[in-house]
Amino acid sequence: MLSMTNKVSTTRTADFQLVGDADDQQRLSHYTRSQFTFIGVRAPERRAQAHAMVRDSRQWPVSDVLAGIAELYERSEREYQYVAVDLAIANVQRFDIDDVRTLSHWVTVRPARDTVDLWRRFFGLYVQHHLDEKPIVFALFYKHDNVWMRRIAILLQLPEDYTLDADMLTAAIIYDRATPDPQIQKAIGWALRSYGKYDAAWVRGFLRSHGLSQIASTEAHKHLLDL
């Protein structure tokens, strides 16, 4: 497992620098209520500036990819955390379950919805490529002390349709259905709304059988009203 104390000089990402805009810096900082420091790079421009490095990372040894993710994630400016997850997503098919355990650590580092939902995408993609390992990945997040980790447990199967494990989704929702955190309640509604596109009857039955918050229920019903 990779040490979390990588020195900058040992990573392939060490010389990578984003170039931002002062106006976007203020806008992004305001959007996150000044929680984080920004360079001022919007998502399309960030991806453009990081494109060559992300592309080349597919040829790096996996250990170098993990080291690069760690180095970027430890930088103070928020956009580098986004680039770190971009690196992870670009290499998702190259990782094994031990790498996934290592990467799950970063979910709890300066967590907010922006980074957590990017990580959710990564873990969801990994599960899609390794359906037999879904229970192991789910266990990394289910019943975790950290509420952001549990948000991923609820949303882990979001990209799936008929491969979704309904028992797993049920367990994640039931565990947190009384948690007042709005990010959890919105995640519950989002997960049910998404699955309702493929199995509306199951979602309707779930909603009838389980008392959910107004936030979760409203979110879950959005798609069902169109069916």
Rank of each mutant, 00 (worst) to 15 (best):
S209Q: 03
Y82F: 14
V107E: 05
E133C: 03
L2V: 15
A200S: 13
R150P: 00
M53K: 12
L227E: 08
R12A: 15
V19N: 14
L72M: 11
L207I: 00
R75N: 11
A14F: 13
A67C: 12
L72R: 14
R47A: 14
F38A: 11
R42W: 04
W106L: 10
A67H: 13
A201T: 05
D98L: 15
F16Q: 09
R101F: 10
A90F: 03
L207G: 02
H144C: 05
L140C: 05
W106V: 05
S194D: 05
T32I: 09
G20I: 07
A178R: 08
W148M: 01
R27N: 08
S76A: 15
T170H: 06
R47C: 06
V85Q: 14
A139M: 05
Y198L: 06
R27L: 11
A43K: 06
H51P: 02
R33D: 10
G68H: 15
S34E: 14
V41Q: 11
D145L: 07
F122I: 00
A187S: 02
V85F: 08
A14I: 07
L87A: 09
V8Q: 12
A216R: 01
P111V: 10
E71P: 12
H210W: 01
A43R: 10
M53F: 15
A88T: 00
K186M: 07
A171M: 02
S217K: 04
I97K: 04
D199C: 03
D181L: 10
R78H: 07
R46E: 08
R47G: 09
S29G: 13
L118T: 12
F38V: 04
V92D: 00
H210Y: 03
G124I: 01
I89G: 05
